[in-house]
C-alpha cells in the first residue's frame, strides 16, 4: 500500500524529529487545506485478494501517554474508495478531502502528542484487516497578535540581597523572533557568577485532579559573565530561531496546553540559583 499526494513534488514538507530521534521529512498541511491524493494498492504478485471494501480516513488524534489506546480523535473524515471485491493487480484509487478542518498543530510532547495521518483500511472477511497510516504534519500560522502591547517589565528581588529590574521589549514573539531586553541591577549583595536566560516549555495535560505538568528547558543562553555592580545594565538579545519551539497552545480540545516562559537565572559562586519566570506567548507567523 502506498500513497501519493495530489500536489506531487510541490507538496510542502517539513522535517521533524521522530520518537527515535531520527529526522523524518513529512508532508505539511495547514488548516483548510485540501488533502487529496492517490492510494496505490498492490497485492502480492500472483495472489488475489478478496476484500470487503477500502476506506480512507483523515485522522487528527490527541494521545495522552498515560491513557494510551484511548486516543481522542478530533478529526475523523472517512471516504469509501473501493467497494467490496477482488484485487488481482496493483490498483490506484484517487481520493480527496476538500478544505479539511485542521485546527491544531502537530505536537510531540512529553505526555501528549497530537498527530495527523491518512489511514487507509482494507477490510477483509477473514484474516486481518489491512490498515496503513501515512503521517502528515499540520502547522498553522497564527494571526499575529497585537504587537503594540506592553512588553514585560518587572522588578524583583530578595530583600537586602539582590534587586533587579528586567525588561523585555515584547511579551509575544514569533518563532523566528529575537528576544531583546535588559537586566538592570539595583542592588547586588551576592556574588554572582553568571546569568542566563532559559526558554522553558510547560506542558499541562489532563484536567482537574488528573492534571499533569511537565516542564523542560529548551534553551540556555548565557547573557552575563561575572558579577555586576549596582547600576549595571546588561543587554539581552536571544535569537529564537535555533531552538525547536512551537507556538503557545492553549487548551487544545480540553486535553492539553503548552506554554513558554523566559526564565532569568542568576547563579552565585556557591551555585545557588536565583530565578524569575515570565510567560511569553509564541506564535507562528509563517509556515
Amino acid at each position: 500500500m502506498d500513497l501519493t499526494y495530489a500536489a506531487g513534488p510541490t507538496q510542502r514538507t517539513a522535517v521533524v524529529k521522530s520518537d527515535q530521534g531520527s529526522l523524518d521529512t513529512l508532508p505539511l498541511f495547514t488548516d483548510g487545506d485540501t488533502v487529496a491524493g492517490t492510494v496505490h494498492i498492490s497485492p502480492a504478485p500472483g495472489k488475489r485478494v478478496d476484500h470487503l471494501g477500502v476506506k480512507i480516513e483523515v485522522l487528527g488524534q490527541i494521545e495522552l501517554y498515560f491513557d494510551r489506546g484511548n486516543a481522542y480523535d478530533f478529526v475523523s473524515l472517512v471516504r469509501e474508495v473501493m467497494t467490496p471485491g477482488e484485487l488481482v493487480s496493483p490498483t490506484s484509487v484517487p481520493f480527496e478531502f476538500k478544505d479539511v478542518q485542521l485546527p491544531h498543530e502537530t505536537y510531540q510532547g512529553i505526555n501528549v502528542r497530537l498527530r495527523y495521518a491518512v489511514r487507509v483500511t482494507m477490510q477483509r472477511s477473514y484474516g486481518n484487516t489491512v490498515a496503513q497510516e501515512f503521517r502528515f504534519l499540520v502547522r498553522n500560522a497564527g494571526i499575529p497578535p497585537q504587537l503594540d502591547g506592553p512588553g514585560i517589565k518587572m522588578e524583583v528581588g530578595i530583600e537586602d540581597c539582590l534587586h533587579i529590574e528586567f525588561e523585555y521589549a515584547k511579551a509575544k514573539y514569533h518563532l523566528k523572533d529575537v528576544v531583546v531586553g535588559k537586566i538592570f541591577f539595583l542592588l547586588v549583595r551576592i556574588k554572582i557568577k553568571h546569568m542566563e536566560v532559559e526558554i522553558r516549555r510547560r506542558e499541562s495535560t489532563g484536567s482537574g485532579p488528573n492534571t499533569y505538568n511537565e516542564s523542560e528547558t529548551i534553551a540556555k543562553y548565557e547573557v552575563m559573565d561575572g558579577a555586576p555592580v549596582r547600576g549595571e545594565s546588561i543587554p539581552v538579545r536571544l535569537f529564537l530561531s535555533p531552538y525547536d519551539l512551537t507556538p503557545t497552545y492553549k487548551n487544545v480540545s480540553d486535553r492539553f496546553s503548552v506554554k513558554y516562559y523566559l526564565n532569568l537565572v542568576l547563579v552565585d559562586e556557591e551555585d545557588r540559583r536565583y530565578f524569575k519566570q515570565q510567560e511569553i506567548t509564541l506564535y507562528r507567523h509563517e509556515l
Partner: peptide, 13 residues
C-alpha cells in the same frame, strides 16, 4: 560595545 556589557568578569571583560 553595548553587547560587551554582558561580560562583567573584570579580566574577561
Amino acid at each position: 560595545v553595548e553587547m560587551a556589557k554582558g561580560v562583567q568578569q573584570p579580566i574577561h571583560g
